[in-house]
Design a protein around this nucleic acid. Structure first.
Lengths: 133, 133
DNA sequence: CTTGACCTTCCCGTGACTGGAACCCCTATC
DNA sequence: GATAGGGGTTCCAGTCACGGGAAGGTCAAG
């Protein structure tokens, strides 16, 4: 199938598929006219990649997952390790965003938000670490 | 003061400060030898920027906040609007990460994680949208 | 024969920096 | 005066994962 069908099958944009070939994630064969010719296996790989990326795995993680997927003798422990590391990273991001949300929410709450120029958000942003203004 | 002192005062790397000058966030004067010469006001602005960036505001948001901060007649409503939009974005990110975390956590939980090759994580990642394998 | 949809490669731009090369300036020491 | 070091400066390239768009080849239909 041509790239557009592979795109439709996997849900990835054609540009992204070309990029994935460029960095060696997939290797579709070429037709005589130079067009990429995707097999069902290629389309399946692309779907796999789309899902893994959708779960937030970095490209290099996806490469590793793909290799594990293609390796019939892989140990599930390898996969689990990768997934757990990723889970930890997600937890860190959530924690950071939550803390950040709390700070900002506090600032917003204290801002009267009318026409008066006195604004605690800006005042706080301007506050020096040592307390000097 | 020289760039290193400005960096120490604001907590930003010197490279970042040069970048901020390049994109017009700050405009330190130059000494005769061509060195940047940061005033106290410059250092204060850099601290402001460091804090705003630390709260996750994009550079262009920081530019707007800085302008509001420098505008003595600004309305706090403007600032609040910016901050609330940012808060919404943070909430969206947290929601997305939380959903993603749930999916991945479920996969990890179901993975026995031993030497057996059978791994639900990879199986799920490979699953086609229509259910075909 | 032309139109239009599709494909190809190539290059530039994104955001917010970071690293490094090549070179200038200033002070201190021998 | 030479040298060493620790500043500073500019410019270029790279990051991550693509997206936009130009210039041009290919194919099926009318």
């Amino acid at each position: 199938m041509n790239i557009k069908d592979a795109a439709a099958a996997s849900g990835l944009p054609a540009k992204t598929i070309r990029y994935y070939e460029e960095i060696g994630l997939i290797r579709p064969v070429r037709s005589e006219n130079g067009y990429r010719d995707f097999s069902e296996a290629d389309a399946h790989k692309l779907t796999f990649l789309a899902r893994a990326r959708g779960l937030g795995f970095a490209i290099e993680d996806c490469r590793a997952l793909l290799a594990l997927w293609e390796d019939r003798d892989r140990a599930s422990a390898d996969v689990k390790r990768l997934a757990e590391a990723h889970l930890d990273e997600i937890d860190r991001k959530i924690a950071q965003l939550t803390g950040l949300r709390a700070s900002l929410s506090d600032l917003v709450r204290r801002c009267h938000g009318d026409g008066r120029p006195d604004c605690p958000i800006l005042t706080d942003l301007a506050r020096m670490g040592t307390g000097a203004s």
